[in-house]
Design a protein around this nucleic acid. Structure first.
Lengths: 238, 238
DNA sequence: TAAGTTTATAATGTATACTGTTTGAGTTCG
DNA sequence: CGAACTCAAACAGTATACATTATAAACTTA
């Protein structure tokens, strides 16, 4: 058991930051089984370092909502329908405004990156490649979010988006949903190209609404046909 | 030399949580000099525990934006004008909606608490007691925020509000500002009493705008690039 | 005297060891 | 056959010791 997730140190600064980055990327890429537990001593042994930096990184991820810390190892949170609704409410409040910012501040290079991500998403949707679609989606979002000059705004958005992203990989394999999302991305992209902040605001609003609607309709944990018997355990909040 | 801040352990759970709570309260109460540095080993010695729980608490506070961690001790962040503007932008997006929520969900006990905090704020303003005014303000905010059923929303708001609160103690000694704030609190309170979500939304919007305006106008460190230069700042009273 | 360089120190970063608590399996008793 | 108790393993919490690094002070030199 315990197929150890592959982790390698990325050259940034101190060990804690490296480990944090690695684990977060692992989570964002969906390379972590829902019930899998992350144990500091195991990860430390795999990386050839001590427990402490790993423990620090795990606790930071807990504070940011990426993980939950139980008495028996760290693991992914299982979001309830209420959790997802709460997250989407915050996103609805923040992302349209941020998109309006990006419409003003995106430069040519950013627009080019967005165009590439959009094409990639379309190609992935056409090919039915959910994982590739997922990646293109993240690239698109990270790009325009990076152009937002209010760092606290963009970081808050990124965090909340990541939280639902954890569970989202499964819903993104639904092809009609992919079509809806691609259409929304294109609409937003065109608003960016025109530097139309109002259009960006409105289209992002619609985009989030659509995303939430699709999400709630398709998410397996909430109307589960899969006999995993997971239940709706409310885990650590705070 | 550096007068050590008084810290005592509060009986919650593990040591890290206790220390975290204590330091956060110390920050929120403004009992921390702007340049004062928090050193884990000192606090640990004062509490009679080891470095690690203190270090964990300090790092958590850094992750949440309450502190900044340098290589030479943890200290309060010095917010630039841009920082403050960014924080207020996020608050403008979140708090009106949260107030609308609270207008629906506040119960009689909550309204009573709000009324008491409001009276306290008025009394403090009349007496010119900035510290008491500050406390009443926090009590008011914590009360209605506690009624918001979206935990992530309320926690995000609380965090960002705390960030500017750190610097705000100075501006709150300005009596005309106190009058403006009290008027805003009363307007919001009345919307809560009437359970009028729309009015709560609108009045909270105005309240935040006023708060930001006053904040930027009065804060000494920020008079850099933004040449305001209008004659409405009645600074002569005090 | 002022600027640049060195050194000392104070603080965090990291490692290892120990403790306490929870969990789950195995066993015994009803 | 099932429920409760015991015990051992596993993992987070805490403590102490060592390493590293950046800052500030001291010192040298032009």
């Amino acid at each position: 058991m315990t197929e150890t997730i592959e982790l390698k140190r990325v050259g940034d600064g101190n060990l804690r930051a490296q480990v944090y980055q690695q684990i977060r990327l692992t989570i964002q890429h969906g390379e972590l089984a829902p019930g899998q537990k992350l144990v500091d001593v195991d990860i430390a042994a795999q990386l050839g370092i001590s427990r402490m930096p790993v423990r620090d990184a795990l606790m930071q991820l807990v504070h940011e909502g990426y993980l939950v810390g139980t008495t028996r190892g760290f693991t992914l949170p299982t979001l309830t329908a209420t959790d997802v609704a709460d997250i989407f409410e915050v996103r609805r409040l923040l992302e349209p405004r941020a998109a309006a910012h990006a419409a003003r501040t995106l430069d040519a290079a950013g627009l080019k990156t967005l165009a590439a991500a959009l094409r990639e998403a379309e190609a992935a949707a056409a090919a039915g490649d959910a994982d590739r679609f997922f990646q293109a989606n993240s690239a698109f979002r990270n790009c325009w979010l990076g152009a937002v000059e209010n760092e606290r705004l963009s970081q808050t958005i990124a965090r909340f988006a990541d939280h639902v992203l954890v569970v989202r990989l499964r819903t993104l394999s639904h092809q009609p949903t992919q079509a809806v999302i691609v259409a929304g991305m294109r609409a937003i992209y065109e608003a960016f190209v025109k530097r139309d902040a109002v259009a960006a605001y409105d289209r992002m609003t619609r985009f989030i609404q659509n995303a939430e609607e699709r999400f709630m309709k398709l998410s397996p944990p909430f109307q589960d046909s899969n006999g995993e018997g997971e239940g709706m355990s409310r885990q650590g909040k705070a």
